[in-house]
Design a protein around this nucleic acid. Structure first.
Lengths: 281, 281
DNA sequence: TTGCTCCTCACGTCACGTGAGGTGGC
DNA sequence: TTGCTCCTCACGTCACGTGAGGTGGC
């Protein structure tokens, strides 16, 4: 029989850890002095301790290890358990690899001293939303006000109530000189009669949405798009659906009543740009 | 101004987390009602929250994020900080990849239903030890007793005291039919005069030592070696020094006084086998 | 006797999640 | 008034490490 300090030196496991494993019932001393509380171990306990360390290294929690050691002889379940473990280890490895990629992309951005470091892009899950919407072709994005007026005039006096920030969806895949295919959407609750132009539908939930927030004059929103697209590209993602432009805080009304209903230069507008993405293979 | 619940929905960050970030001084509400304690946020706080999430995703702790956000304008240190982060992310990725490899190796072992799953191999750091030793050629490992007698007769009556488990080092790189080059070592403290045969030296510390414990008759120790070698190979390691065989609990003395001083079939012997290893490239 | 080893609490870690128990606002 | 939202503790997580304060053994 040897004392805990010697057992610790032999196994190169700290005394604190051995005491902890004792409390956790993973490996108990063969004898404990009733008077002093001293723990005494045997050399033949080393294989069990080694097994604990080996299982820990494979990624098992102490609780799992306890259960694995308790059921002996081990049934044929270990294969399945190890397979699970393998999947988890694989997933964690991929996660770390992706994180590394993002760090490297950010580093490249910083080294290029671009202004894009002002925009932070993050991946989030977005729930589905029920919206009333009007889809149409407009000459350019700042001229989407007629679609909004069309939408809101239909909502006015209906039983539907706005429920969330309105947004614009952009369907074009490449850059357009003119004639943009867009859809203006207002989340709603309650019933609304559809018309030829005004539809009620549910935007699907998106598992991985790359999101960035633009705060400032609308005229400079292109920078946010550039930053988002660059981030998506560098991070090894690809776009798998229409972009969404969510109006979190609307800019002031413009003076005069043209098709341009909002003051594009108001620095208080806040907009979130969202791109549904997928990891590219 | 919006309430915490709405800010949470907008940012898709939980209310609990927002309160926590408030406590941590990462992002404070613009206004807190003195009477009710209600927190109120502004839309323009979203970019800051996004920055927090982006930094978190890059692997920074909340405390580090707090410091990064506090010092603005950010100095040119970010590049160095990101480089550090890159190294860490890279290291973690490699660790996970290696863990995955070990899990897969174990899985292969189980599927082959070999008996080797009885042996658990773990990587540990081993400190340097000062030893008295005798190196020599013996016909086969069980016949190393003369070397031990030579060593101990020199220790007897000297000022040196044994300090730890004795061990045998194996220098041969391939399997030998006969004539093994081995060194028997006894850790000591205190001075000892060297002779032609008995040397005092310090075994170097080893950063990565693959260790496994054999418990049972010495005659079956080959299984432990097989398991260790297989583990080393499957795990993508290679051996970078002489193996050590550490006697943790000596077997009983053999009856009769041949060169074989220990009873090789005593089931109570406990031996640790150690291989210095390195990750193979 | 003096170090050395051992003991048992109790607390800290990290980034929140999970209640308990209570209150404000429409 | 009834839900709904918000609040503040307090505790749990995971695998130990770090003291504090005290005692046994040679």
């Amino acid at each position: 029989m040897i004392r805990i300090g010697d057992f610790s030196k032999l196994s190169r496991v700290s005394v604190k850890t051995l005491r902890y494993y004792d409390d956790m019932d993973l490996i108990k001393p063969v004898y404990v002095d009733a008077l002093t509380g001293y723990r005494f171990y045997e050399y033949h306990q080393l294989p069990r301790l080694n097994r604990i360390l080996a299982l820990k290294d494979l990624g098992f929690s102490l609780e799992e290890i306890g259960r694995l050691l308790a059921e002996n002889p081990p049934p044929d379940r270990p294969v399945q358990i190890m397979q699970l473990r393998k999947e988890e280890a694989h997933k964690r490895m991929l996660e770390e690899a992706e994180r590394l990629e993002r760090v490297e992309a950010r580093l490249r951005l910083i080294e290029q001293e671009t202004d894009m470091t002002r925009y932070d892009v993050v991946i989030k899950r977005v729930e589905s939303v029920r919206v009333a919407s009007v889809r149409g072709i407009v000459p350019s994005p700042p001229q989407q006000a007629p679609l909004w007026r069309e939408l809101w005039s239909n909502l006015d006096g209906s039983k539907a109530k706005p429920a969330g920030a309105c947004m614009t969806l952009y369907y074009d895949e490449e850059y357009k000189e003119k004639d943009w295919d867009i859809e203006v959407c207002q989340p709603i609750t309650g019933e609304l009669g559809e018309t030829d132009r005004v539809k009620v539908r549910t935007l699907p939930a998106v598992e991985s949405m790359a999101c960035t927030v633009h705060h400032g004059p609308f005229t400079a929103i292109q920078q946010a798009y550039d930053a988002a697209l660059k981030w998506i590209d560098e991070g090894g993602y690809r776009i798998v659906g229409p972009a969404r432009e969510v109006v979190l805080q609307a800019p002031a009304e413009a003076k005069g009543g043209s098709d341009v209903a909002a003051d594009q230069s108001d620095p208080n507008g806040i907009t979130e740009i969202q791109y549904p993405v997928e990891k590219a293979k």
